[in-house]
Design a protein around this nucleic acid. Sequence first.
DNA 1: TCAATAATTAGAATAATTCCATTTTCAACT
DNA 2: AGTTGAAAATGGAATTATTCTAATTATTGA
Lengths: 145, 145
Amino acid sequence: MAFSLSPSSKKTFAHSLREKGLRPTKQRACVYGIILDKRDHPTADDIFDRVKKHLPGTSFATVYNCLETLVGCGLVRQVNMDRSPTRYCPNLTPHAHFKCTESGQIFDVQIDQETLSKMHALIPKGFLAENIDLCFSGKGDSSTQ
Amino acid sequence: MAFSLSPSSKKTFAHSLREKGLRPTKQRACVYGIILDKRDHPTADDIFDRVKKHLPGTSFATVYNCLETLVGCGLVRQVNMDRSPTRYCPNLTPHAHFKCTESGQIFDVQIDQETLSKMHALIPKGFLAENIDLCFSGKGDSSTQ
DNA sequence: TCAATAATTAGAATAATTCCATTTTCAACT
DNA sequence: AGTTGAAAATGGAATTATTCTAATTATTGA
């Protein structure tokens, strides 16, 4: 049985895909639902395990295909830290990531408008940034571990 | 014939290694010299090709070993963008990276103290950042391509 | 319903990096 | 100078995340 998205998520999902002429399949909905459901920045591997509980026949390739599609539609974002496996995040607001080197957990860190502007201002004339990626790593908050 | 470091680089190099009880070997000096020589953010593969011109018998494993050692000693820094191969950079000052999506080139972008402080201030109480990584990607300066 | 197109599937292939067992190098001691 | 022991280098195999491929299945629009 497929993952059930909330009515508003389902609308966003179907709309974003149709806008690009893509089909809102049950696998894509499931992957999207899983990323929304537990916002722990899962890897493709984590997502594959969770998807299989809902749609047991799903293959790894499909999970990767779905993730690529969802990223392409702007529904989820990739988080790359070091050489570790890519993680996925449904938070579309401007934010940075903090990786705890002890637990491996990743935390979202909001970026205020003023700091964001200062960061943008670093870019030299003639360059046009389409993407900004800010990552911290170090010791996380022990109360959350 | 080994790569020849400038007297001051040689001193920094030998000192940083000896401080950690490590040996300043000719392979390590060569890898370090190559990263200092052409500051184009080479990959391990690029470095391997260049090292072989000076020390033909060098193996890939040695290049990786040397890079790990140099990073561990703080002589060079790793630059990870997306899932592309790790690149290496001898610029030890606070700086960000801009990757041109057209040419693949990576440019250093200096970070002023005020912006750096603002970025640090984003980190929530209880977290201790040991590393900051700021990356931009988009269209680079066409005059440099 | 049916054809056309898009998406999914399983498994092979790839690419960057790491591991491992062996050999070589280097520095400190006889 | 020769010996020894630890550290480093070597070649090749192994690993891991991801992408590719060819065949099958699902979805959409006429």
